Amino acid sequence: MSFLSENEIEDWACEILQECGYAVTTGPDISPGGAHPERTSLSDVILTARLRTAIERLNPHLSQAARDEALLALRREDTPDVVDENRRLHGYLVDGVPVDVVREDGTQSGDRARLVDFDHPERNDFLAVRQFVVEKDEANRRPDLALFVNGLPLGVIELKSPSSETATLDSAWNQFQTYRAFIPSLFRFNEVLVISDGT
């Protein structure tokens, strides 16, 4: 009996994601110096151009200043605690980012900038990135797959080969703990973690 390699499992996962509407690319391709760079630095975990486009598309009623305010709120880290930061950003994802709006009569009020089109999911931008390198300080880590919705990294998938005795689901879970310790910025927006050995 032959087992799938980790790379074959990754290929299979990408095929499934494509069937679900995800475009698939590689980390090196969208990194600085890549064929289609979408990041100015390996420390960037938000695909800013995609996010900016989504905010503009989903919030035509908001001024450019309000849309810029929403983008800044997403890029800013309010707390060093990953769990607290994840809760804050989950609220933004579900309810929208609170922004100030100046009305035509000069009064100010609050509004919310939507980040995801929940009513029409097909109108969102879905991207799976293979081997997405994230760098912080002198350390860098490379999850097998990072899943982006409208430029936000909402999912991380770690795959292991069932033919390797050391590449267990437990080791994949421990890998997430290492990622969380060394590249916590990737987990600020996280909504789902997946580990699989293909079986």
Rank of each mutant, 00 (worst) to 15 (best):
V82M: 07
R75N: 05
A66N: 04
L93E: 05
E85S: 10
L93S: 09
V102R: 14
R75G: 04
D68P: 02
E69T: 07
D78A: 12
R88Q: 12
D95G: 01
L89I: 13
D100P: 00
V101W: 07
H90K: 13
L74R: 02
A70Y: 08
T107E: 12
R88T: 12
D95R: 12
G106T: 03
V94M: 15
G96R: 04
E77Y: 00
E69H: 11
R103C: 09
R103Y: 03
R103W: 05
Y92L: 10
D100F: 01
Q108C: 08
G110N: 05
T79G: 00
V83E: 15
E77S: 12
L89G: 06
R67C: 15
Q64Y: 00
N86D: 01
R75H: 06
G110E: 14
S109C: 14
R87A: 14
V102A: 06
L93T: 11
A65V: 14
D78T: 06
R103Q: 15
V82P: 06
A70S: 11
Q108N: 05
A66E: 10
E104H: 11
V83I: 15
V99T: 08
L72Y: 00
P98G: 03
V99A: 09
L89A: 02
G106H: 07
V97S: 01
Q64C: 07
Y92D: 10
T107L: 05
E69I: 00
D100N: 11
L72M: 09
G91S: 12
G106E: 09
V101F: 03
D84T: 10
V97E: 03
R67A: 06
V94R: 15
V94E: 13
